[in-house]
Simulated scan of single mutants.
Amino acid sequence: MPVTAKICGLSTPETLDAAVAGGASHVGFVFFPPSPRNLSADQARALAARAPGHVRKVGVFVDPDDALVDAAISAGIDALQLHETSAQRRADIAARTGREIWAVIPIKQGADLAYANHIGAADRILYDAKTPRGALPGGMGMRFDWKLLQGFRHPLPWALSGGLDSASIADAARITGASLVDVSSGVETAPGVKDVDKIASFLKAVRSL
């Protein structure tokens, strides 16, 4: 099965274009003000308009309110990646928007995977590294032990995130069996500053899998 990639936290036309040119299946826009990758709805709209229809536009949120979700939907978001959001709230958002829902499960140890079996109200699971208390819930360049996913029976389609880059992606895909991978800080020169060459290198490595 081929591996596809989401380039997350995009904020400029040049990096959006690099993601599309490199063959990304998904592009991610962050709607969370504490993040250095945060976008306004207008900024996201302009970027989403540059992406062809076959590239899925994913909005990234942390327990968002309705106004923020609605603003992102108006900007052209196809799917919502929800961090720190309860199953009931995800269900409410899904019912209101009709959009695909990604539920994020932070992983540090094997016991954290148990939540996947009663995740509820999600179309896809995104496994990401659990960050320290008080830190951003993602985009920190942290990774978890990929071997924790070996042999795990995933209840839903899923994606792998957390500390990926062009040097590690082959091992990550081989160990976990991921068919969709998600990168943010691994294609940056500084927090929130994406690099077109790093994006191209990462996507070239993905295409070689």
Rank of each mutant, 00 (worst) to 15 (best):
Pro2Met: 05
Val3Ser: 02
Lys6Pro: 05
Gly9Lys: 01
Leu10Met: 13
Thr12Arg: 02
Leu16Gly: 00
Ala19Ile: 01
Val20Glu: 07
Ala24Arg: 15
Ala24Asn: 14
Ala24Ser: 14
His26Asn: 05
Val27Ala: 14
Gly28Trp: 03
Val30Glu: 10
Pro33Ile: 12
Pro33Phe: 11
Ser35Ala: 11
Pro36Asp: 12
Arg37Ile: 15
Asn38Ile: 04
Leu47Asn: 12
Gly53Glu: 09
Val55Tyr: 14
Lys57Gly: 08
Phe61His: 08
Asp63Met: 03
Pro64Asp: 03
Leu68Val: 13
Leu68Ile: 10
Asp70Thr: 14
Ile73Asp: 04
Ser74Val: 07
Leu82Ala: 00
Ala87Arg: 07
Gln88Gly: 03
Ala91Val: 02
Ile93Ala: 04
Ala94His: 07
Ala95Val: 07
Ala95Gln: 14
Ile101Tyr: 04
Trp102Met: 11
Ala103Lys: 11
Ile105Leu: 15
Gly110Gln: 15
Gly110Cys: 03
Ala111Trp: 10
Gly120Lys: 04
Gly134Cys: 10
Gly134Ser: 12
Pro137Ala: 10
Gly138Ile: 00
Met140Cys: 13
Met142Asn: 09
Trp146Gly: 06
Trp146Asp: 12
Arg153Lys: 13
His154Thr: 09
Pro157Lys: 00
Pro157Glu: 01
Leu160Thr: 08
Leu160Ile: 08
Ser161Trp: 04
Ser161Asn: 05
Leu164Gln: 07
Ala173Arg: 05
Thr176Lys: 03
Gly177Ala: 12
Leu180Asn: 08
Asp195Val: 11
Asp197Trp: 05
Ser201Gln: 15
Ser201Pro: 00
Ser201Phe: 00
Leu203Asp: 15
Leu203Asn: 15
Ala205Lys: 01
Val206His: 02
Arg207Tyr: 00
Leu209Thr: 07
